[in-house]
Design a protein around this nucleic acid. Structure first.
Lengths: 142, 142
DNA sequence: ATAATTTTGAAAGTTATTTTCAAAAATACG
DNA sequence: CGTATTTTTGAAAATAACTTTCAAAATTAT
């Protein structure tokens, strides 16, 4: 029952008549091995250490697949490139505007209040994003 | 003391040695007259009803000025173009993923919880974004 | 093996801005 | 008020960050 990401991806590929490739395997493994928020370019350079022939587009497409089968989330913090993170238990983000570091937080009380607000307007929540921007403790010292 | 947006912009222009132009006046007035979230293109077409010679770039640049002097906020909901809204009392957004309508909400209890979370990590909040995505009551009926 | 499909990587195309540049407008100066 | 100086403007070119296209290469089916 607790399938690994690779197994979930495999099933997804089969269910869609898609193929198994060396590139998809390497990219997926690298993505799940690293546990940070990654830009496409970052994952690309990690993956190229293992196989220099892999191109940007393949990493991009593989991340789209991971998103489609629910194994990854794409985040757009501030401007610029988006970041991808492993799907897992829910959490929100606290982003330092100086160093770019990202801390995660979670608070059931906030989720509860959100639900109340939505219910009052008869709005059906599909997802949400809650990001706190500011200065992390390390950067405040400088 | 309670200066109008135009006055605040004027002071800002003077303080930076910038000039007063007919275009800036029209664009700013239109922006503050309408009270929705506006795309650059939307504001452009409103403004062109008053002066068809005004170009996209001037609207864009004027909005950047309004942002710089704190009179406007730029929002990036989902993908696509960004929206600009008047700065004013704080509120967050509830966005319908079907029709794109935007409702505003505000909840001091959530703000309070946020502050608590930040304090615990010794994080100094500068701003935040909190967006709820889902289906508005009207779209649910279809 | 061979045929039928899907993938891949490079290059071209998109979208939404941003920047550049020469002409036009605004303020400063005499 | 005219002229000089600087800033603006609008059109067009440039960027950033994807997204799509296409012919060659890799997979899977037969």
């Amino acid at each position: 029952m607790p399938e690994t990401p690779q197994e979930i991806l495999d099933e997804f590929l089969v269910s869609r008549g898609l193929k198994h490739t060396r590139q998809r395997k390497v990219i997926t493994e690298e993505f799940f091995r690293s546990n940070k928020h990654l830009r496409i370019e970052e994952l690309l350079s990690q993956v190229r250490k293992l196989d220099p022939s892999i191109g940007y587009v393949t990493v991009y497409r593989t991340l789209m697949l991971l998103k489609e089968c629910g194994l990854a989330h794409q985040r757009h913090f501030g401007e610029g490139q988006s970041l991808f993170e492993k799907a897992g238990d829910h959490h929100d983000h606290m982003i330092c505007i100086k160093c770019g570091s990202i801390a995660e937080f979670e608070d059931d009380r906030i989720e509860e209040l959100q639900d109340q607000i939505a219910k009052k307007k008869n709005f059906k929540i599909v997802s949400h994003r809650h990001e706190i921007y500011g200065c992390c403790s390390r950067c405040q010292k400088e």
